[in-house]
């Protein structure tokens, strides 16, 4: 009996030690997934930020062109950016030509520091948003993922990118300027491979987030995305796919959110009462449904209330 106890204690210690050892290496375990010719994605977990995942909850990617590598989003931290760079080096010896940022949320651009010296390109709205909110985001991520962030500072984009075609090497990249998830959402369509990097305009099997969202604008952006022809869809979060189903699911959820909030506000519900609303089971396959729905109430409900409230004095 006693020896069993010792074995159990020993096992627990080994387990604890290995957990600590793993975390202390701060290894994001980035493995490039080839999604098309010369196109790779680092697929993140469909989780919220935690001390365990270090913020590896986002999809980043890269395209290897004859003129160098085009990186799409730089991840949540300096360490992520560095590890991304190392993982790219294992695929190609070509230098990094440019980093494109899809939007200003911290999990997409705080790895910029690792790419200093290269052109970092973003839409004008994104450049402005990073200037205003970047530092606050970085502080917040330190609180949410801890030491994974060590040494991370905000590095602003070096150049503004206008919508249109960006030709790098033989790759003809269409830069598409949208908004709705934030006030500046870039999507990138590679006309050579048919890969669409949608940024956070699309979440796939992971409930969308709304801290800077405008539902109606977002819906019209997705409508416009759905007119594009692409073979591979790389969403900002969630699995890579090969059809337009993820777009349809986004439209369904956003439309449901809008209708539900309108109804809740006009029925006189408080925020917490709105959070208790039963969620349709068809959305159950989306990770973090309950949690993100509650967050969306906080972000969006006040504007629905103000539509219902009338001046009383």
């Amino acid at each position: 009996m006693k020896s069993l106890k010792i074995i159990v204690i020993g096992l627990v210690f080994t387990l604890l030690f290995s957990l600590v050892a793993n975390a202390s290496k701060f290894d994001y375990q980035l493995k490039p997934l080839k999604v098309a010719d010369s196109t790779y994605v680092f697929v993140g977990k469909t989780e919220d930020f935690t001390f365990e995942n270090g913020g590896n909850i986002v999809n980043t990617g890269f395209i290897v062109t004859s003129a160098g590598v085009v990186v799409i989003d730089s991840g949540p931290s300096l360490r992520y950016g560095q590890q991304m760079k190392a993982a790219i080096k294992a695929v190609t010896k070509l230098p990094i030509k440019a980093v494109l940022l899809t939007h200003h949320h911290p999990d997409h651009f705080l790895g910029n520091q690792a790419f200093e010296g290269t052109d970092i390109l973003a839409l004008a709205s994104t450049v402005k948003n990073i200037k205003v909110e970047g530092a606050g985001f970085a502080d917040n991520l330190y609180v949410m993922v801890g030491d994974w962030m060590r040494g991370t500072d905000v590095v602003e984009p070096t150049k503004t990118l206008a919508p249109g075609f960006l030709v790098i090497g033989e790759h003809k990249l269409e830069i598409l300027s949208y908004s709705g998830h934030t006030s500046g959402d870039m999507a990138i369509l590679d006309h050579n491979t048919g890969v669409l990097f949608s940024g956070d305009l699309i979440f796939h099997k992971r409930t969308l987030t709304t801290p800077h969202a405008d539902i109606n604008i977002w819906l019209s952006s997705i409508k416009s995305l759905s007119k594009l022809s692409f073979n591979v869809l790389v969403p900002g979060h969630g699995a890579v796919s090969h059809n337009k189903k993820a777009l349809t699911e986004m439209v369904e959820y956003l439309t449901w959110l809008d209708v539900t909030f309108k109804k809740a506000a006009s029925n006189g519900l408080s925020m917490n009462e709105a959070m208790q609303i039963k969620l349709p089971t068809k959305f159950n396959s989306n990770a973090l449904l309950k949690q993100e729905f509650s967050r969306s109430v906080i972000h969006l409900f006040p504007s629905y209330e103000s539509e219902v409230f009338k001046r009383l004095n």
């Binding site: 006189g268 103000s306 409230f309 009338k310 001046r311 009383l312 004095n313």
Partner: peptide, 8 residues
């Protein structure tokens, strides 16, 4: 002091 609201 501007007040907006509704009664149900």
């Amino acid at each position: 002091g501007d007040t907006y609201g509704k009664r149900w």
